[in-house]
Amino acid sequence: MGTILGILHFIVAAWAIYSIYKSSAGTGSKIIWSLAVFFFPVVGLIAWFFVGPK
């Protein structure tokens, strides 16, 4: 079960980082959001979903 959750998390994080880089936000914001998603996986993804660049 842990492997499936790990793969699911990787897919969601990769999609989030891809969406961050495709957004119209500034370069600094993109880097900060990407680092947040990478270093704080659950909190970063939730924060990006609710307040991240659209």
Rank of each mutant, 00 (worst) to 15 (best):
A47I: 01
T27K: 15
F40P: 03
W48E: 07
F38R: 08
K30H: 07
G28V: 01
I20Y: 02
L8F: 08
F40C: 05
V51Y: 13
F50Q: 08
V42S: 13
G52A: 00
P41I: 00
G6C: 09
S23F: 02
P53Q: 06
G6W: 10
I20V: 06
A13T: 03
H9F: 13
S23H: 06
T3E: 15
P53R: 05
L35K: 00
I17V: 02
A36F: 07
L8W: 05
W48F: 11
K30S: 04
F40Q: 09
K22M: 13
G52I: 01
V43C: 09
W15K: 14
F40L: 11
M1I: 05
L5A: 12
S29R: 14
L5V: 08
G44I: 05
V51M: 13
S19A: 09
K22S: 06
S19C: 09
L45K: 01
G6K: 10
F40A: 06
W33C: 01
I20T: 04
I31H: 08
I31M: 03
Y21D: 03
A16W: 00
S24P: 10
W15M: 14
A47Y: 10
V51A: 08
I17L: 00
Y21G: 03
F49T: 07
V37R: 01
I31K: 15
I46M: 08
F50Y: 07
S34G: 12
T27V: 10
L8R: 08
G44H: 02
S19P: 03
T3C: 13
A25S: 03
F40D: 01
A13Q: 11
F40W: 00
A25K: 02
I20D: 05
W33D: 09
T3Q: 15
V42K: 08
S23C: 03
K22Y: 07
K54A: 10
